[in-house]
């Protein structure tokens, strides 16, 4: 009886979306905005042209809850999703994602280090960077991570993501910690204190953001003069809307996005077919022409021929002077505690 009730209640809750998944279509969950547009051009449209399968797009803010709820209710309508690497790891731990059978991805050996997870197939490299509005400062322009924390030299509000992730890394870099040592310092209590102390110096000037589309908006509206942001979103605003923004390539945090398959999708074979298609250099090598995110296979990397486009990518050598690779394991271990401390700090 209890089980019956649970299933029927959950089934009722998800019934609304159950109708969208059909045999001749594949539902892909992604982030919306400029990023989804680039995926549409690089993957969805060519895939439909090649196979006749329609791609049904669904949108979210990167949270796993939606997938988890579907998997636990046994009614999975999302066939493929695009997750941050940390979330893909989390979903794998939770057992709500399919373990990837790499033998079904022909170019599996060509992926760059870090872009292959147990439950995730890499799709892009992206970076959390600091960007600023060039019209905000008349004299010197900011050029380092330390400048983001320097309110005297570069006055104005700062846009910051409402999460301890990456912001603690930024604070330590600005405080003079070498990029290579950031996560070692964060492994100590004093290191965390140090990061929060640095964040304290700009606390009163912070405007918080939660979705990736907010930072370009905050910069454009003049609500902030500098903001932490995802590099592709800023690049799209520069290229697409002629916004006077500039990205500071210093101390950025480099990460991957992953294609994942929710456990129990009725379209498992088709989902693998899509991942195979999207991992091929022919497709992956075109995405960077639509948004400033880099490919994750070597062969797709060789398809970046336009130097102007190459410079905009987080994987471009010219941008890799001082950078930090995102440490998945660190955050999987410490996020609970640090987020509690972060919330306490934010709300005081």
């Amino acid at each position: 009886m209890k089980k019956l009730l649970t299933t029927s209640v959950l089934a009722a809750a998800t019934f609304g979306v159950a109708a969208t998944a059909q045999a001749e279509s594949l539902t892909v969950l992604s982030w919306g905005g400029a990023y989804a547009s680039s995926q549409r051009e690089a993957y969805y449209k060519p895939y439909t042209a090649a196979t006749g399968t329609q791609i049904v797009e669904d949108e979210f803010n990167g949270e796993l809850a939606k997938i988890k709820a579907q998997v636990e209710a046994g009614n999975v309508t999302i066939d493929v999703a695009d997750l941050e690497s940390a979330t893909a790891l989390q979903g794998c731990d939770e057992g709500v994602l399919e373990v990837i059978d790499w033998s079904r991805i022909p170019n599996a050996d060509d992926f760059i280090p870090g872009s292959k997870l147990e439950c995730g197939v890499g799709t892009i490299t992206w970076a959390t960077i600091v960007a600023y509005n060039t019209t905000a400062f008349s004299g010197d322009q900011p050029s380092t991570m330390a400048d983001f924390f320097d309110l005297d030299k570069f006055p104005g509000k700062r846009g910051v993501r409402k999460s301890p992730k990456v912001m603690l890394e930024f604070a330590l870099i600005a405080d003079g910690v070498p990029a290579a040592d950031v996560y070692d310092v964060m492994d100590t209590e004093e290191g965390i204190d140090r990061a929060f102390a640095k964040l304290d110096t700009i606390k009163d000037s912070i405007v918080w953001w939660e979705s990736g589309s907010q930072p370009p908006q905050l910069l454009a509206d003049g609500e902030v003069t500098m903001s932490a942001a995802w590099n592709g979103r800023i690049q799209s605003a520069i290229d697409g809307e002629n916004q006077p923004f500039k990205i500071i390539w210093d101390g950025q945090n480099l990460d991957f996005d992953m294609w994942v398959i929710p456990k129990g999708t009725p379209n498992l074979d088709k989902a693998y077919d899509f991942l195979k298609f999207a991992s091929a250099a022919k497709q992956m090598g075109t995405q960077h022409t639509y948004i400033g995110y880099g490919p994750v296979t070597n062969e797709a990397g060789t398809m970046i021929v336009d130097d102007k486009l190459a410079e905009k990518l987080p994987s471009a050598p010219v941008n890799l002077g001082n950078w930090v690779p995102h440490n998945l394991d660190y955050w999987a271990d410490n996020f609970d505690d640090l987020n509690e401390r972060f919330l306490a700090w934010v709300s005081q």
Partner: peptide, 15 residues
Amino acid sequence: AKVGKRLNFEKPGFR
């Protein structure tokens, strides 16, 4: 990993 996540809530590093 599932039980690791549970125990990590009690003591960071358990996972």
